[in-house]
Design a protein around this nucleic acid. Structure first.
Lengths: 342, 342
DNA sequence: TTGTATGCGTTATCAG
DNA sequence: CTGATAACGCATACAA
């Protein structure tokens, strides 16, 4: 841990520390020769500037921090990948910070801001319904990506990229109705969900009503509390309940593709078939939905575009002081082989 | 960004900065009352210590950094989740740092060490065959998790957690041979792979030889360079090549579950069936392998145990100055419905 | 138990 | 173009 400092480099080069500093940050007013000499020495002794000291001095660092809640959600993987690429393209450094499901992302963010002095922040996943005031405390540009809030928030106070979860959910359930299904179940998140889980459920309800079907509470299968709700394991378990519930549902709409896949597997393991015995649809448009057998009928969220839009918006805000805005992307109904006409 | 500093807090409290510092870091020699008073003020003004300044002073910070190469690999998701939990259990903070596939993880690590002064490091993914000397430069405890190296490395110089990729691969191919398969193809990583891709290929070759089958180079389908090799998309594409290759293979062993799933889908899309027309096996034991239809025959790596072992080993090294060691876990052959006797 | 003063490694200001 | 030197916010040795 006895690493070499800028002073040492200066001594070795026989110059002042400020000259070394100038070489590092390639300032304009420095002799080209001296600069090369210094850089050479730095390379030889592989000196690395202490970033803590830098951040202490500098007002901001060229860093974007991504806070992610639910890192095991496969939906985020693709986004993170693109974030990383885009951020590197802008020659910023990219810090990924996991947020525990119990933590408040804004509190965590505040600390990291102090430490890293990042130029911008992306929040991925989580539930912001109760964090409105806290968000106001953030004094640097930030974008909520793929985060829904069921409450009304002041639209000038934040930026977001998302799909209209309720409308997309409505779209899917309408499609199922159009295929002749009358008894459509919903594989839901937890009952207390206040985010996308709730919105998708609302879309489901509304679609049924608009098709003159009275939603039956017994058609809704909530996730148990002891299991991550957006997982295949949960889908499997809930679908087992569906099959023993006595409800003669012909179709199931799952709150996510992972849940849909778990549900399919439960059907297979029961010796039945999808879509003959049950039509099953998902939400997200994960790669695996396409590669599954049968391919899952789903709502494809335009992940790439959304990720790109997220970084673009963030950098626009950083550079041009662009206004806060909420961008809503349209999902695409992708019909696979997991649903059928009845 | 006009945030409040320790001085301000001291002034407000009417005490010296050192007293505030003592309160924050709850030092023993401080009056309980003063301490509570200071803490109260801190809470009211929601003061957050500047970590850059702290790290600049302190020799080390209570942080573990996880470097991950290939964040979109679903195999890592579960591990990261456990890392996060364990690290938080130890009351350390957890920093996830993505490493671009072009970057050298050790170089990146060196910089982050300077900045964060972490107590330990975990490397996840990547290829360390050429970084041996560089690893020596790391002067804090680190563990390579799920990283294979094909070259010989000095076993006292590093710690690692992994499975014996070659042996496990051998196990799977032997199983396929035992099921009567004679012509077994391999869906490989890239030809220049020097890590797990190579080891798994070596295991495949050895198993064939030991079963008196001469490996035919035309049975090996390498990933194209323009695609991520451990993906479903790659599996799909390679399997299409298999089907038009004229090689009448009866079984395919894929370098990963994702690749196996892509391959299955290609078979289905060609109007054929798994395992009737082709037996297909994977490697990793992802959740999706179990939930796929048919369930993928695979080698299950004990992810949880491995992740737990990784953190345990790291903390042991941090605390007890435990010796470097290489822990090799045994994989489990999980027979699904994607393979059959021939 | 508490306060004061010093230095951690950098960058930026200001004379040279 | 270059070199002292003063901050940056905090922890800590030392003095009280």
């Amino acid at each position: 841990m006895d690493s070499i400092t800028i002073k040492d480099v200066a001594k070795i080069c026989g110059v002042g520390v400020s000259t070394v500093s100038r070489a590092i940050n390639n300032h304009p007013d420095i002799n080209e020769e001296t600069k090369n000499m210094v850089l050479q020495v730095i390379r030889e002794h592989n000196y690395i500037p202490n970033n803590s000291a830098r951040n202490l001095k500098r007002s901001v660092s060229r860093t974007i921090v991504v806070f992610i809640k639910g890192i095991d959600n496969p939906f985020f993987s693709a986004m993170i990948k693109i974030f990383g690429e885009e951020i590197q393209n802008h020659r910023y450094s990219f810090l990924l910070h996991r947020v525990d499901s119990g933590e408040n992302e804004v509190d965590v963010a505040m600390e990291v801001i102090k430490e890293k002095k990042p130029k911008g922040i992306i929040f991925l996943g989580g539930y912001f319904s109760h964090s409105q005031k806290k968000l106001g405390q953030l004094d640097i540009p930030f974008v909520l990506s793929t985060i829904a809030s069921t409450e009304q928030m002041d639209r000038n106070r934040f930026s977001s990229i998302s799909v209209d979860d309720m409308a997309e959910s409505y779209k899917m359930v309408s499609y199922l109705c159009g295929q002749g299904h009358k008894k459509i179940g919903f594989l839901a998140a937890t009952p207390d969900d206040e985010s996308i889980g709730k919105l998708r459920l609302m879309g489901y309800r509304k679609a049924l009503l608009d098709h003159n079907i009275t939603p039956d509470p017994r058609w809704i299968f909530y996730s148990d509390e002891d299991i991550e709700c957006y997982t295949m394991g949960n889908g499997y378990r809930q679908m087992q309940k569906v099959m023993t519930s006595g409800q003669d549902l012909t179709a199931l709409f799952a709150v996510s593709d992972s849940v849909a896949i778990g549900a399919c597997k439960a059907v297979f393991d029961a010796g039945k078939s999808v879509p003959q015995d049950y039509s099953i649809a998902g939400f997200d448009g994960l790669d695996i939905a396409r590669y599954y057998n049968p391919a899952i009928t789903t709502i494809r969220q335009p992940v790439e575009e959304m990720a790109l839009a997220t970084t673009k918006l963030l950098f626009d805000m950083i550079r041009n002081k662009a206004q806060n805005q909420q961008k809503v992307f349209k999902g695409e109904l992708v019909v696979g082989q997991s649903t059928r006409t009845v």
